[in-house]
Design a protein around this nucleic acid. Structure first.
Lengths: 226, 226
DNA sequence: CCGGATCCGTAACGATACTG
DNA sequence: CAGTATCGTTACGGATCCGG
């Protein structure tokens, strides 16, 4: 039944890593699980186009490889869920490195055919974190984008993020996703964002600080297509 | 002829990145090109199992995506070569992040069926660099492994590496690949390495410093297989 | 010999139908 | 809802062939 998965068959640090991570959908499953345990259906809905059989197989492989564990919801939850192991959670940094490299690819706006879920942007923001701008800052920022809510925390020179509302956020942003992208890519000035009513809490100075602290444009060197 | 390549079709930083990097062999091609321009044959020989048609297609895709450029050898070389663009070279950091996560996978020794080329270890060493151990150090270390030669440079708190001999190396290591791995994973003590004659230049203290500066064991938390 | 292009069998993937 | 079973399609892997 469960065959040996395809392998590059090289004794090489990169090749062995890609044997585990490199197959289609694997890293996107990690992306989804990084924001907490998910049920089969949640994964299927976030990964449009994946066959249910393939998703099932991938999860089994990832379980064998020590990336994912099958869990039970703690309180009265009967549903089985998938969650990352400690080792799997360490992929956080790896995903950010991939995203950081690919930031220029996001400059091209969303095509109509493309799917979009606001929580995907959480990783995008975290990948653009600039520690040198965050010295002495200890704050939480909350974003409501297309009815999804997530927040970023900056503390002790580190940034972290999660879905849901933040705790005592000093800034609350609320807009559709398109407007949020213009914010993230520094295409809108704080004053204009305020004028449009996107800021439910916090002032222009705070917003400007956020834009300095999370700035994808630092990486923007276009890929120079032919 | 050249169809649209398969895409996740998601407006997501990670998904768009994987649309470019995620297909089979792509990142291994990058691995090879990171150590300088290569000819078609060089790539084919380092990527055993790749079909020549697939390799050709990948290189075209990578060219379209601004990763790779077709170049000519400068002096009297007539051969066409493939080299990374500036944007492609930035994948350096990304590969190191992947390798760093996958380091525990290398603890399992080389299987007989696996292929091996010494220069693959160069990335492995670089991924294990610990800047905090390199303060004030400015040195070059040279390694001869299975008749391939590469060197590591540490300078100004940064590490870099290349194929070929180093300049004024303060340490020269020479051994087969298996012995080198025991070195890299700190499984051999400096005195023993000297006793076995692996050290052609440099003393035990220098070797100990190398092992402190490049230490993959820091990341060694086994994936907890079932 | 090198750099591919062409062809073909096999394995992986994607969509849908089906079951506990 | 959480998968398994089935099936058509695409991508991959290996071999062969050909111009430079």
């Amino acid at each position: 039944m469960s065959n040996e998965p395809r392998s590059y068959n090289q004794y090489c640090p990169l090749a062995r890593t890609l044997d585990v991570l490199g197959e289609r959908w694997t890293l996107l499953i990690v992306r989804e699980l990084l924001s907490g345990p998910k049920r089969f259906k949640d994964l299927k809905d976030a990964l449009i186009g994946v066959g249910t059989n393939l998703l099932s197989n991938r999860l089994k492989e990832m379980e064998r490889n020590g990336l994912v564990a099958r869990g039970k919801l703690p309180p009265p939850g009967v549903a089985a869920v998938y969650e990352l192991t400690e080792h799997g959670r360490k992929l956080d940094e790896t995903l950010l490195a991939l995203i950081r490299w690919g930031t220029p690819l996001l400059a091209e706006p969303k095509k109509p055919s493309e799917y979009f879920m606001p929580h995907w942007l959480l990783h995008g923001m975290l990948s653009a974190f600039r520690p040198e701008q965050a010295a002495g800052v200890s704050e939480t920022y909350e974003f409501h984008v297309d009815h999804e809510v997530f927040h970023l925390r900056v503390h002790a020179g580190q940034a972290s993020g999660d879905m849901g509302k933040g705790h005592e956020s000093c800034l609350i942003w609320e807009s559709d996703s398109e407007s949020f992208m213009t914010l993230a890519f520094n295409l809108i000035r704080p004053e204009e964002a305020i004028a449009r009513g996107y800021l439910k809490r916090g002032d222009a100075e705070t917003l400007a600080r956020v834009l300095r602290t999370f700035d994808p444009t630092c990486a923007l060197v276009p890929p120079a297509r032919n």
